[in-house]
Write a protein that binds this DNA or RNA. Structure first.
Length: 266
DNA sequence: GTCCAGGGTAAGC
DNA sequence: GCTTACCATGGA
């Protein structure tokens, strides 16, 4: 089937923006994306036209939301252009980026793993976890393991995926979600403050990781995670003053332009 | 071998 | 409230 996407949409940039670790690029410029129990193969076929492997209904009900296609990113770039050179440069450089709305449970584990790890090392660990504990969906493509799958694993089995001391955190988080002590479904209805508070109760989840889970798993695009790269931006480009409050309810999107620019131009 | 990575926890103050 | 030592491991 074919779909038309007119707004900012660059899968290569999205794949390399540090928010998603479950996109694989194949030789023929086709991307394979795993989301929950679904696989999407998508490739460009014209300026605004894409070939997708799903039907219209699945596209509308699953992937439009996943790609955040109801938000006008070009308008956001236009709204914030012309005030600050660094903002202009990074928005231009990152044109095509979007904030994906991924599975909250997967984001919880993914960003617990992310602490003090490079993006490549994160992807390597996620791949191993899916291979070890996830269900096989298709040829060599594995679902991210469920909370039940993961809390049945031993600490040493989890550690074998290269996560080091984070294995304790992962096990504990999986137990919280599996037992219902942490209900991610009801979390989706909470406001930002309450959701942040709930996530920070999980061992291994602090301010930065909680904001990543909110931004990439709950679509809370007002949240701007501050990691080592963004901290450098604040020091080098804004004189040590956190600029994100001025970007209001799209601070997380601006943050993503900054992060992508910095990590691609190191 | 050395340094850094999308940080957090617990102890100490 | 704010510092600081420590945490395992992969990748450059």
């Amino acid at each position: 089937m074919q779909v038309i996407i007119k707004d900012d949409f660059d899968l290569e940039k999205i794949m390399n923006s540090g928010q998603v670790f479950r996109i694989q690029k194949s030789d023929n410029d086709s991307y394979c994306i795993v989301h929950q129990d679904k696989i999407l193969y998508i490739s460009k076929d014209g300026s605004n036209t894409y070939n997708v492997s799903c039907d219209q209904r699945t596209w509308n009900e699953t992937w439009r939301d996943y790609f955040d296609l109801n938000r006008d990113y070009s308008k956001i770039r236009k709204d914030y252009a012309g005030n600050n050179n660094f903002v202009d440069v990074t928005m231009n450089f990152g044109q095509g980026l979007r904030i994906l709305k991924q599975d909250p449970w997967e984001m919880l584990i993914t960003f617990i793993i992310s602490q003090r790890k490079s993006m490549k090392a994160i992807k390597s660990s996620i791949d191993k976890i899916c291979l070890q504990f996830g269900v096989c969906l298709d040829d060599e493509i594995y679902k991210f393991p469920s909370p039940q799958n993961l809390c049945q694993a031993s600490i040493s089995e989890i550690q074998a995926c290269g996560v080091g001391y984070r294995a304790d955190y992962i096990k504990s988080a999986a137990e919280s979600v599996a037992t219902g002590a942490l209900d991610l479904c009801s979390c989706a209805k909470k406001d930002d403050g309450e959701l942040f508070y709930e996530l920070c109760k999980v061992k291994g989840v602090g301010t930065k990781v909680a904001n990543c889970i909110m931004l990439f798993g709950f679509g809370r695009v007002g949240r701007a995670p501050i990691d080592v790269w963004i901290e450098r931006v604040i020091q080098d480009e804004f004189g040590g003053v956190n600029p994100f409050p001025e970007f209001g309810d799209v601070a997380g999107i601006i943050q993503q332009y900054f992060f992508f620019f910095k990590t691609q131009n190191k």
